[in-house]
Amino acid sequence: MRGVIDHPDSTRTSGRRRVASWVRRTFFGALLVAVLVFGGTAFRVWQVAQVDQWGQADMIVVLGAAQYNGDPSPVLRARLEHALDLYQQGRADYIVTVGGGQAGDNYTEAEASRMWLVEQGVSAESVTELEVGNDTLRSIRAVSDVAEQRSWDSAIIVSDPWHSWRSRSMAEDQGLRTMVSPTRSGPTGEVRTHYILREAAAVLYYRLTHASAEITGHGLG
């Protein structure tokens, strides 16, 4: 009895099917991992946003947001009011305001912030303005430089809730002992979900590149 001989075309077809099956499994496996990583990051953004860390620090850092001819925007004002409250509680003796300006602006975000704080009774000597950085990473690096010059090693960062984890991570990467104390006036509902997802993407980008994601529009650089 003669044995059955596989036809060459049948063998090639079977091989292609195995390859296609492997490609599909690899693709969906990678997709599942990506979804899990992104979902876990988004959850961590949400989780840290709920935290208000209590303790003493060398400085309170107010991350910049829009200002209008020296008048802080509602987002920036909320940060400044919260920083003022922390300062009055004695959480730190100094406040550092950060943020550059747009072309044609009369004031920078840092300058507008400093003026507002001084108007509220904070001594001018207690406020340092850093008129650099239109994104978080450059602002944090500028803060780190000032901290090194003044032998400071700790900071309380004031920003929006969804921005807390990334800004804290950046500051810790610069060698600062960092706490976060976010405002409680950030976006809600669908807008909040949008910012959480956007911030999760920015965190992952930073982790992969150690560069800023250049998020604009809400002080989330």
Rank of each mutant, 00 (worst) to 15 (best):
E81F: 04
H194T: 11
L130R: 03
V122R: 08
R192H: 10
V4P: 01
H194G: 12
S10Q: 12
S169Q: 14
V37N: 00
G55L: 11
W165A: 00
I5R: 14
R198V: 00
R150P: 02
I5S: 07
R150S: 07
D153G: 15
R77M: 13
V45T: 05
E119K: 11
P161I: 05
A201N: 03
D71F: 06
E125R: 14
A112N: 09
A124S: 15
G189M: 04
G39A: 08
S123Q: 12
G100C: 10
R44G: 00
E125T: 12
G219H: 02
L76T: 02
L117G: 10
W22D: 06
H163A: 02
E81K: 11
F28G: 02
R168M: 14
S144V: 01
T209E: 04
V146M: 07
S144D: 02
D160M: 07
R177L: 11
E131K: 13
L36G: 01
R114Y: 03
L130Y: 06
A147N: 03
A34V: 14
S159N: 14
Q102E: 14
V23T: 12
H7T: 11
N69D: 15
M115W: 05
A78D: 15
V37I: 15
F43R: 07
Q47I: 02
M59T: 13
T108A: 09
T136D: 06
I140P: 00
S113H: 07
R77E: 15
W46V: 01
R25C: 06
V19G: 03
R150I: 02
Q67N: 08
S10I: 13
R18W: 11
M170F: 05
D85K: 14
Q88H: 12
T216P: 00
R16G: 08
V4K: 12
Q120D: 05
H218W: 01
W22S: 12
Q88L: 14
M115I: 12
